[in-house]
Design a protein around this nucleic acid. Structure first.
Lengths: 151, 151
DNA sequence: AAAGATTGAAGCATCAATCTTT
DNA sequence: AAAGATTGATGCTTCAATCTTT
C-alpha cells in the first residue's frame, strides 16, 4: 500500500492518457457507426474467437482477455447471438459452462469491420507520430499496462 | 482524407493506448467508489468550475473543456444540482443560456475527492514509470491529443 | 464454499425530437 | 437558420441476487 502523492508531471500525464485513450476509441467508434457497423466491443469478441483454437472460447476466457465483467459479457454475447454472429452451446466437460463459437456470418462481419477500424486508427492516431516515436510510445504503454495486470 | 492502412506497430500501440487509458480510469473510479465518493466525471466538472473566473461557467463551456455531449452534461448537472454541489441560474446576458456555479458543498466535495484521486493515480500509474520516462510519455501523448483537437 | 454464468431492477448514455433565443 | 439547452424513448452498464455445477 503506497501512500505517496504524485508529482505534477505524473498528474498531467495521467490526464493526457485518459483523454488520449478516450478520444482514440471514440474516433474509431464514430467511423464504425458511420459505416453502419457494430461497435468495437463486438469486433474484439469476434477477433478473440477467430484467433482461438477451434474458433471457440468459454465466456470466462473472453472476459479475462478483454477485461470485461461477467454480467457485461453475458449480455453482449446475447446481443451478438441474436445478430447471428456467434453460437453458444453447453460445455460437455464442465456442466456449469458454455462454449461460444464464431459463425460464418460473424467471421464475415469481422472482415467487413477491419478496414474501417484500421483506417480510423491510421487517420486518428497513426498519422500523428513517426515510426520511431510510435515504438517509443508502445514501449512506455507496455510498461503501464503490464504493471496494471499485476495489481 | 487519408486512406492508408496502419502498420503493425501502430495497431499494437493503438490497442495498448485504448487499454491503458481504460484501466487507468477504472483504477481511479474503483478507489473513489470504495471511498464512497462520486465518480470522476463529477470531479472534472467541479474542478473546471473552481478554476473558472467567478467560479462560474456556461454549460457549453464545460462541454468543450471536458469533451462532453450536450445532453450528457445536461443530465450530469441535474444530478449534481440535486446533490447540492452546483447551482444553476438563467443568464442575464443570453436568454438561451444558463450559468452554473459551484456551491460550498461542491468545493468541499472536490477537496475530499482529491487525495483519493491523487493516491490512486500514483499507485496505479505513477509508480510504474521513472520521472524521465513520465516526461517522455507526456510529450508523446501531448502530440496524440493535440492532433485529435484539430480534427 | 467457490466458479461459471445469468437476470431483475436501477442508473447512465445515446438518439432524435423539441423548445427558446439569437 | 443556428446556438444553447433540455427531454422522452431506447439501449447499455452496473449492482445485487440467484442458479447450477464443481
Amino acid at each position: 500500500m503506497d501512500d505517496l502523492m504524485p508529482d505534477e508531471t505524473t498528474i498531467h500525464t495521467w490526464v493526457l492518457l485518459a483523454r488520449a485513450g478516450r478520444t482514440a476509441v471514440e474516433a474509431v467508434e464514430a467511423e464504425l457507426k458511420a459505416a453502419g457497423l457494430p461497435p468495437l466491443g463486438w469486433y474484439d469478441v469476434l477477433w478473440e474467437l477467430e484467433r482461438a483454437d477451434d474458433r471457440a472460447l468459454r465466456p470466462f476466457e473472453i472476459e479475462s482477455r478483454l477485461l470485461l465483467a461477467q454480467y457485461n459479457l453475458s449480455r453482449l454475447l446475447k446481443r451478438m447471438e441474436a445478430a447471428g454472429l456467434v453460437d453458444r452451446r453447453p460445455s460437455t466437460e464442465d456442466g456449469r459452462g458454455h462454449i461460444i463459437t464464431i459463425t460464418e456470418a460473424g467471421a464475415a462481419m469481422r472482415r467487413r469491420m477491419w478496414p474501417v477500424y484500421a483506417r480510423a486508427i491510421e487517420a486518428a492516431f497513426g498519422a500523428r507520430l513517426s515510426g520511431s516515436d510510435m515504438l517509443r510510445l508502445s514501449a512506455l504503454l507496455e510498461r503501464v499496462v503490464r504493471g496494471a495486470e499485476e495489481a
